[in-house]
Design a protein around this nucleic acid. Structure first.
Length: 255
DNA sequence: ATGGTAGTTTGACTA
């Protein structure tokens, strides 16, 4: 089973790219972030026509998350207590794995009100996972965490030292989630620096090779041994009218 | 140096 995550930066603006990408890559599951539409505006028909079941949790203009799956989705959870009523979390059970699509608050700048909210939100997410992740059900978190794990995920660590996405407090909050009992899937296979999932439009980051790895697939410990491969689809980031994020695809060997 | 682009929405916000 192949599970992907992709911050599409508006599912309506990205629909042509999404259709082409799903057709070409055919993942079993796609966790989507930044759909940027209310549930009644979600292009549900178009997604179903690609052969996918869908569960979404959206709002006007900002945020919005969804699960696309070739297999049935059950036990759907939209949001969690203390999430600030923003549409940033949805999870569902697919082939006996509870899979979440997560869009962590950006945080703007260190010390801002949004930065404080980001850290609070991450605590609430941890609380939610601690309560809902049953020991006997394998689980995964996939999404845009807006946090780098370490300086290998940063194109210029000196420039980004203790800046947003790279602060010790953000990284500790991410580690606290990992400590619930999961692992960073990509690092099972790839240990080098320079693997990025996001490139800033404004600075022409992609063309300059200046990116960050802030999109992650976290796999619960019992499921980690079933992991077979993880890849970042950089070609998609280089396409016409791309999102600013590249998709990440994880392959699992389930029974 | 506080820029630069993109999306939503049509002025200003979020990223």
């Amino acid at each position: 089973m192949r599970i992907a995550t992709w911050n599409v930066n508006s599912i309506r603006a990205r629909l042509p790219r999404l259709q082409e990408w799903l057709g070409a890559r055919q993942p079993d599951v796609l966790c989507v972030q930044e759909t940027k539409c209310t549930d009644d505006e979600f292009p549900e028909q178009e997604v179903r026509e690609m052969g996918y079941e869908v569960a979404f949790h959206g709002q006007k203009t900002y945020n919005g998350v969804a699960l696309l799956s070739k297999h049935p989705i059950s036990n759907v959870i939209r949001g969690f207590p203390g999430d600030g009523e923003e549409a940033r979390f949805i999870s569902g059970r697919i082939r006996d794995v509870q899979i979440a699509s997560v869009y962590v608050i950006n945080g703007e700048t260190v010390g801002s009100e949004k930065y404080a909210r980001k850290l609070e939100w991450l605590k609430k997410l941890r609380d939610h996972l601690n309560k809902t992740c049953a020991a006997d059900v394998p689980w995964m978190l996939a999404g845009d965490f807006n946090i780098t794990f370490d300086d290998r995920d940063v194109y210029d660590p000196a420039k980004w030292h203790e800046r947003i996405f790279c602060t010790t407090r953000e990284r500790d909050a991410l580690k606290a989630i990992v400590d619930l009992g999961c692992r960073d899937a990509l690092r099972k296979y790839h240990h080098r620096n320079g693997i990025y999932t996001w490139f800033d439009f404004r600075t022409g980051g992609y063309q300059r090779g200046q990116g960050l790895r802030i999109d992650h697939v976290l796999v619960s410990t019992p499921l980690f041994k079933a992991l077979r491969d993880v890849e970042v689809d950089l070609a998609e980031r280089g396409a016409e009218k791309p999102s600013d994020h590249a998709p990440v695809i994880a392959t699992l060997a389930l029974d």
